[in-house]
Computed example of a mutant assay.
Amino acid sequence: MLDKASYNKQPKCLVALDSIIFGFDGEQLKILLVKRGPNPTLQTWSLMGGWLAPNENLERSAERILFELTGLKNVYLEQLYTFGDVDRDPIERTVSVAYFALINIEHIDSTLSQAYHAEWFPVSEMPKELLFDHRQMIDLAINKLRYKAALHPLGFELLPEKFTIPQLQKLYEAIFQTTFDKRNFSRKILSTRLLVKLKEKQKSSKKGAYLYQVDQERYETYSNSFLNFVSNSAF
């Protein structure tokens, strides 16, 4: 029979939540890092994170922490993995539940960098030294993002509300670190019927490329479906 006394005898363990926040600036896939560390005089780059609150479940805490750090709600947030090496945190025994988030960089307030010493880094140009096991978290998140983007249309979460097919292609080339044939990419994307072609054209484009929007109803219906949305062999 379980009783509170038996629980009180057990060693306590802190639970942290760290977020791998991806963004896309139109050219490069980027990740948001902040300056922090266990020693205030020896700070290093790290992921954004916080602590699990006693009255919250993991998802609620992750959403709250992301909102407190970025001011954003209703963003794509998915649990990635739990990191629990005994010596991962030199100060206190801490288990970290990692999430990855997809954010439109344009929605991030400029005061974020001032308040948290935050900076966007291209995935290919991140600092060599990161806090604790955060590099391992990021590497795992990049692999998961590529896997998910190959099967599901979650890449739209990184784009503005209106975008062109070339912009979408640049995003997927940035995610997969490869190039796709333009005609095949356009054909493949449009065949999903997830996009709505608008009458507007991109003013900054020389040829005036048409703008598209995501069909939200179809996106919500098929976002968790096996779509074979993008694959290296398809282009």
Rank of each mutant, 00 (worst) to 15 (best):
G208F: 07
K162M: 06
I189Q: 04
K170V: 01
Q167H: 08
L158E: 04
A209R: 13
L151K: 11
L198F: 00
G155Y: 04
P153I: 01
E157G: 00
F180M: 12
I165T: 07
E161T: 14
L154V: 13
S205E: 11
K203N: 12
L190A: 06
L154H: 11
K203Q: 14
K188N: 11
L159V: 01
A174S: 15
I165N: 09
G155C: 03
Q202L: 11
T192H: 15
E157W: 08
F163L: 02
L154N: 11
K188R: 13
R193M: 10
A174Q: 12
V196E: 15
L159F: 06
L171C: 06
S205N: 14
T179V: 09
L159H: 08
F156Q: 01
L151F: 04
K182T: 11
F156D: 02
P153K: 08
S191D: 14
R187I: 01
T164W: 03
L198V: 00
L158G: 05
L171D: 06
N184L: 10
K197M: 10
S205H: 11
L159G: 08
T192D: 07
K170N: 14
A174W: 14
L151S: 10
F163H: 04
Q169P: 03
I165C: 09
F156L: 02
L151Q: 12
K188Y: 00
E157L: 00
E157M: 05
P166G: 03
E173I: 02
L190I: 09
L168V: 04
D181N: 15
F180A: 15
A174Y: 14
Q202R: 13
Q177N: 14
L168Q: 08
F176Y: 11
L168H: 07
P153D: 10
L151D: 13
R187W: 00
S204I: 01
K207D: 15
A174M: 11
T192L: 07
A174I: 08
L195A: 13
A209C: 05
L198P: 01
K170C: 06
R183T: 09
K182P: 15
T164K: 07
Y172T: 03
R183I: 05
L198I: 00
E157S: 12
S191F: 02
E173K: 06
K170T: 10
V196L: 13
K203P: 00
R187Q: 11
F163Y: 05
L151A: 03
Y172H: 15
P166Q: 02
Q169L: 01
F185I: 03
F180E: 08
Q169W: 02
Q202C: 12
S205P: 03
T192W: 04
L158D: 06
K188G: 01
R183V: 05
E157P: 01
S186K: 13
L159N: 08
F176S: 10
N184C: 00
L168G: 09
S191W: 02
Q169E: 06
L171V: 01
L198W: 00
L154M: 12
R183E: 10
L154K: 04
P153C: 08
E173C: 08
Q202A: 14
S186G: 03
K207C: 02
Q167L: 11
L195R: 12
Y172E: 06
Q169N: 06
K206Q: 14
L190G: 04
F185A: 09
F156A: 04
T178P: 09
V196S: 12
F156E: 03
S204L: 02
L158M: 05
T179Y: 10
Y172V: 03
R187Y: 06
T178V: 12
R193P: 00
G208I: 07
T192Q: 13
